[in-house]
Design a binder for these strands. Structure first.
Lengths: 212, 212
DNA sequence: CGAAAATTTTACCATTTGGTAAATACACGA
DNA sequence: TCGTGTATTTACCAAATGGTAAAATTTTCG
């Protein structure tokens, strides 16, 4: 018997699978699925191409493994949004967690972004089954806060979109951001301050009714 | 002499170049540069592959043509931001223009996003030469408004990032948005209202100083 | 019309790329 | 240390892909 899949994975198996996934994350995040080659991944991982195919069924298998592994991590900050916490704190902390994540895991952010950008060909089902229920749940939480008058009457769905957009922007559009911003140590803090100001301004209860 | 490049382009030339670029926009926006094939573009354009290569030097040439043509369009809404207009109106109108653009030109938005996501390998120089000067200029305009106390003391650079991020999100992450939002006619208006509320809340002069 | 120029098609080619078969080297428990 | 299953390499292959040469067709214009 060979077949890597079944039984308990050996020490070498775990190490090499980890090495391959890490290398693939680098390559896929930079070039996208179709732009990445197995040879690139192999080189990055320090293994031969056939050796990589000993651990994974193929290029697609690696990609899918990466994506489903990523889903958990990606949802985590939203999972932590506590219905029983202070609304302002909860939302602003969520923003901060997402921003930290974009900063600490830019490769993952770009992998995700690339997948969505191309129409989520591999992650579509995951979005439906994992992301949507969580999204709906947390939108309901925010709606509850609004009904209780604890935050302004905003649009929960679009609020979350704006949080995702603004935070992930720093990872996904890093090539643009780095051209436009002088390299300063303070940039991270400025981004954090800005987003805090942006969303706390929106949350303040005395928001006016939308015109137009 | 053949060589498409020089002299005045014929009727057929203009038509076919337009057809090819439009087809290529569809394909590149969906699959990215490396994910797109000349055969796909040819089929989409209703032309043969060699015929496409009669009008463009190669795949890269098509891509570059598309990107540089796009740059103008993309910068346009920011160009229109008027230093002598009312700050609130100017910024909120800019948000609206960007949102409209994401909605009306999703392919262009995704092409741009894909290029940046992969490190701007083709557009890097354009970012420096075209985008950065404009960005700096408009940041200065916003700074001026802040100094005059016309808007809150916000961070001009990151404000613009947030505007880009939130508006383009609807085009670039459409695959995700469409999973999470029920298909309603009102979605566009809700997004518009949300962003208006978001940024007008930030602009209001009585914003508090950032803590932390 | 008729010839020259522009356009399009047909038939290729070289390289890249995902993937496989089989032989070889290695690890590890008995 | 030996033997067995695990891990890795070597040597390939078929399909896809970007691109070209040259013949054939169509358009343009005097």
């Amino acid at each position: 018997m060979s077949e890597v899949v079944s039984k308990k994975p050996s020490r070498i198996q775990r190490r090499n699978r980890r090495v391959i996934l890490d290398a693939a994350l680098n390559i896929f995040a930079q070039h996208g699925f179709r732009g990445a080659t197995l040879d690139q991944i192999a080189t990055e991982a320090g293994l031969s191409k056939p050796n990589i195919l000993y651990y994974f069924q193929g290029k697609e298998d690696i990609h899918v493994s990466l994506l489903s592994q990523l889903m958990e991590t990606w949802l985590d900050p939203l999972v932590e949004l506590d219905p029983y916490g202070d609304p302002q704190t909860e939302i602003l902390d969520y923003v901060q967690r997402k921003l930290d994540m974009a900063r600490d895991l830019p490769r993952e952010s770009r992998l995700f972004a690339g997948e969505i950008l191309q129409g989520a060909p591999y992650m579509g089902p995951h979005l439906e089954s994992d992301l949507k229920p969580l999204f709906d749940e947390k939108c309901a939480v925010i709606s509850g806060w609004i009904d209780q008058g604890k935050i302004a009457a905003l649009d929960p769905q679009h609020l979350i979109f704006s949080i995702w957009a603004t935070t992930q922007h720093y990872a996904d559009f890093e090539a643009q951001v780095s051209v436009l911003l002088e390299k300063e140590a303070a940039n991270r803090q400025r981004a954090s301050n800005h987003l805090r100001a942006l969303f706390s301004a929106l949350l303040r209860p005395q928001s006016p009714p939308p015109s137009s």
